[in-house]
Design a protein around this nucleic acid. Sequence first.
DNA 1: GAGAATTTGTACGTATGTATG
DNA 2: ACATACATACGTACAAATTCT
Lengths: 81, 81
Amino acid sequence: MIKWRPSHLWEEVAATLRTRIESGQYPPQTRMPSIRDVMQEFEVGKNTALHALEHLEEQGLVVMVQSQGTFVTPREEWPQA
Amino acid sequence: MIKWRPSHLWEEVAATLRTRIESGQYPPQTRMPSIRDVMQEFEVGKNTALHALEHLEEQGLVVMVQSQGTFVTPREEWPQA
DNA sequence: GAGAATTTGTACGTATGTATG
DNA sequence: ACATACATACGTACAAATTCT
């Protein structure tokens, strides 16, 4: 059903979110858009939204807490940044 | 559809596979059971089988190679073991 | 405090892409 | 040409804890 894709959806989503974090649009300690929010804004499935957020978590930019949300990590803990 | 589960399926699957690796049942350099194999043996879905293998990869016990399979890491590279 | 909604996590199913054998 | 195998991507459902009304 999907024609042709130069890159990966979850990477694009993660890259966009990362830019917003680093630009201060999502300040540290605050809550990121939820999985559902990401699904709606980027029009992707849950797996893709989740994968993108998990990728940011692996990079240490955010922390996902069950039942609470995804929170931006304090700048001090960011990698190189 | 699922009643109640004390722990997590993917953890049980990963634990079982890990035991087999450490016991030498799956020797280093050789190919592990594929995702499909894991699905059939443990009677789990693809996501669960994949998640279990990815967990082993994060632990450094195996390496997943696209189109080839999942291979056991040499003992020297195992964590603590 | 009660109930509804939200949110992450787990789990299942399916289809397609890409590379290998 | 075909089967295999991992990777990506879609959808759905339920659980558990938290948050909001």
